[in-house]
């Protein structure tokens, strides 16, 4: 039992931090600009493909530096020539713009790299087993992802609260006119925020792509889980996103580790007939519903605490 708990906790933290790495850019854009970026997962995928391509030419380290730079630049262009134009038509238009953009990015990636999986590998200097617990190996690359996520988190907190740029960004959100009058270029601040957000997505892609599967369907497979992280954590709160990522990671991992179902507890009192809805509910295990628990969490949080766990504003 202790073994399962320790291993599940470890797996949960690793998965949670991966979620945070993927969602950090989204939460930045969502909380700073109010834009629900449906193309976020597409930039994540773009980062993975760019990372793969650059690592083929120049190695892994240049890949994780250059891929986010290129993707971030593209993101800034998207903001400048696309989002800014539709901004005046409201958030729905912005959101739908990113929706359409997701289609385009996916198709362009398929045009360049095709539809099959890329052979994007963990670099050899990180391809060893970092430590072993209960005979289960933990690869160094996972530890690297964990450390990297935490570094990103600390870096973002520092950037937003301790630097001049961060203060301007925060002020641009709440008092755009005032910031503009103080002589700052507010549209450019938004452009930079969007570029930064997309480059965070791309860096997550460039790192996670090597650990998982780099294929043109990886954005679609990710689904809306990242929105759950952002909303559950609370708008405008990096801490919230951080905690929500951990929470969701642990929730899913522990759910998977358990085989409980209603029939296991009450099976001796009642046994519904096969082929009825009650039977389906009776026999489903927590492990089976593990991956949908985050969505349940999302609905419950929004009903009972619309600001999210750490949010200060209403969603």
């Amino acid at each position: 039992m202790a073994e399962l708990i320790i291993i599940s906790t470890l797996n949960g933290v690793l998965y949670g931090m991966l979620l945070f790495l993927m969602a950090s850019g989204l939460t930045l854009i969502f909380s700073m600009m109010g834009v629900l970026n449906f193309a976020h997962a597409s930039f994540y995928m773009l980062g993975a493909f760019l990372g793969f391509q650059i690592s083929q030419w120049a190695g892994f380290i240049p890949a994780i530096i250059l891929a986010p730079l290129i993707a971030g630049g593209l993101g800034a262009l998207v903001e400048r020539y696309g989002l800014r134009t539709v901004h005046k038509h409201g958030h729905v238009a912005e959101l739908l713009f990113t929706f359409g953009l997701a289609f385009i990015i996916e198709e362009v990636i398929q045009m360049i790299w095709g539809k099959l999986a890329m052979d994007y590998r963990v670099p050899s200097f990180l391809d060893f087993s970092a430590f072993t617990i209960y005979a289960t190996n933990y690869p160094a690359y996972k530890a690297f992802m964990l450390v990297f996520s935490i570094a990103i988190f600390i870096g973002l907190i520092f950037l937003l609260t301790r630097t001049r740029a961060g203060l301007i960004i925060q002020a641009s959100l709440t008092h755009p006119n005032m910031v503009g009058m103080l002589g700052h270029n507010v549209p450019r601040v938004f452009m930079l925020v969007f570029g930064l957000g997309t480059s965070l997505a791309a860096i997550a892609g460039a790192i996670a792509g090597a650990a998982f599967v780099t294929q043109s369907n990886m954005a679609a497979l990710l689904g809306p889980i990242l929105f759950v992280v952002v909303v559950v954590g609370g708008l405008g709160s990096l801490w919230g996103a951080f905690v929500a990522s951990l929470l969701i990671g642990l929730l899913q991992t522990f759910a998977i580790a358990s085989d409980w179902s209603l029939s296991k507890f009450f099976g001796s009192y009642l046994s519904p007939t096969r082929g009825t809805i009650l039977f389906d509910i009776w026999t489903v295990t927590i492990a089976q519903i593990g991956p949908i628990l985050p969505y349940l969490l999302l609905v419950l949080v929004l009903i009972f605490r619309p600001t999210g766990l750490f949010g200060t504003r209403d969603t």
Binding site: P224, V231, L296, L298, L302
Partner: peptide
């Protein structure tokens, strides 16, 4: 607003 949109997504 967004809260409704997100609940609809979760549901």
């Amino acid at each position: 607003g967004t809260a409704f949109a997100m609940i609809s997504l979760g549901l």
